[in-house]
Design a binder for these strands. Structure first.
Lengths: 192, 192
DNA sequence: CTCATTTCTTAATCTGGTTCAATGCTTTTA
DNA sequence: TAAAAGCATTGAACCAGATTAAGAAATGAG
């Protein structure tokens, strides 16, 4: 059950058996059915969740009622509304399972306790968020300076497994185009 | 000279006099003239720089040769190409002063030494990047789901001092619109 | 197996924003 | 203090992508 997350953690920091066991003791295991919400905007987000199996999307509903997908997360990723989690304020994001999932949750208090007891985890989470930040920068650049067909091609190159697991209109809502246009892009590309 | 950065640091973590002095010993003070490059794409970025006074822009040149501004940084901000800095690889970003600046630099080795000797700084930098991440998420959402006039209005609301310090076409390249269109937006808004 | 729902496609029309080109206005620089 | 360079504005033509509408295909629940 913890084998996968241990491998993940081990890539960044090296831990003793005791530290690892303490870490495990703070995690809560849950199975969650497809199409469930881990979080809705307005609630307080008191978790970061590590995905053992399954697929999840994190999205935002804009002022016109459109969904914007921020992230498709699969095995070995973390999901949360970090702004809500870390400042203990109400969430702006929705987190919804797209498949049946197995997850490990850690709550705010436990995370702080973990940092206090094993400061190496502070480093782990710093590196995690640093990577997320860089991904976000790439995506902003991509959105500002590349055409939709380009963005789609880069998406399937970067996340080749996602299109098989996630409906196309959700990918459109990730790329920031209408589902109709994504459909056009695909037929265009398949002809060329 | 260190008063400002100490105030900054103190907002997140509390340090003893010795820790603070050690921190200072790792910083390098520099004055830099307007229109200088702190970093060019292709170089290795071996610094994070804290701005005491002045204004800096961080930008990217896309495949069509267009500049995309990622950040205008002023007093009390940090700038770096984090991907380059933390993975010691060559930079994709340019960092250019827009005004004469006073800066404090820290290099990679010093930062790692600092983390080792005073782990509290790991927390500080985690919180810093977490904030930068959230800002980036906001900007992506904004870019995907809001019109250019909207984005401009939010920009001047969020950074009211920037338009007085930075030429308009650079703001256009931050918002992701052409300078001509930003000009049109402005005349439209001033009439309404 | 069947009806309902969700998903995907195609086509016509419309619009926000780009591109190109011309003009006047400020800053630099020599 | 002039000449040059950079900056902002305006208008016309154009295009990427949105919107609307309708039907086809796939998936799922009873």
């Amino acid at each position: 059950m913890y084998k996968q997350i241990d491998t993940y953690v081990n890539k960044c920091v090296s831990l003793t058996k005791e530290e690892l066991e303490y870490f495990h003791s703070l995690l809560q295991y849950k199975k969650v059915k497809k199409k469930s919400f881990l979080l809705r905007a307005g609630e307080k987000c008191d978790f970061e969740a590590y995905i053992i199996t399954g697929c999840v999307r994190v999205y935002y509903i804009d002022e016109n009622g459109f969904e914007v997908n921020l992230l498709f997360a699969v095995e070995d990723w973390w999901v949360s509304d970090l702004a809500s989690f870390s400042q203990q304020q109400s969430a702006r994001l929705f987190i919804e399972t797209l498949e049946d999932c197995e997850l490990l949750f850690i709550d705010y208090k436990s995370k702080e306790a973990l940092f206090k007891k094993v400061p190496k985890f502070e480093r782990l989470f710093r590196l995690m968020i640093q990577k997320a930040y860089e991904t976000m920068v790439d995506r902003l650049i991509s959105n500002i300076s590349k055409s939709a067909p380009r963005r789609y091609q880069e998406f399937i190159k970067k996340y080749p497994t996602i299109p098989q697991r996630v409906p196309q209109h959700l990918i459109a809502a990730y790329l920031g185009v209408s589902p109709e246009f994504l459909s056009k892009i695909r037929t265009r590309l398949s002809k060329a």
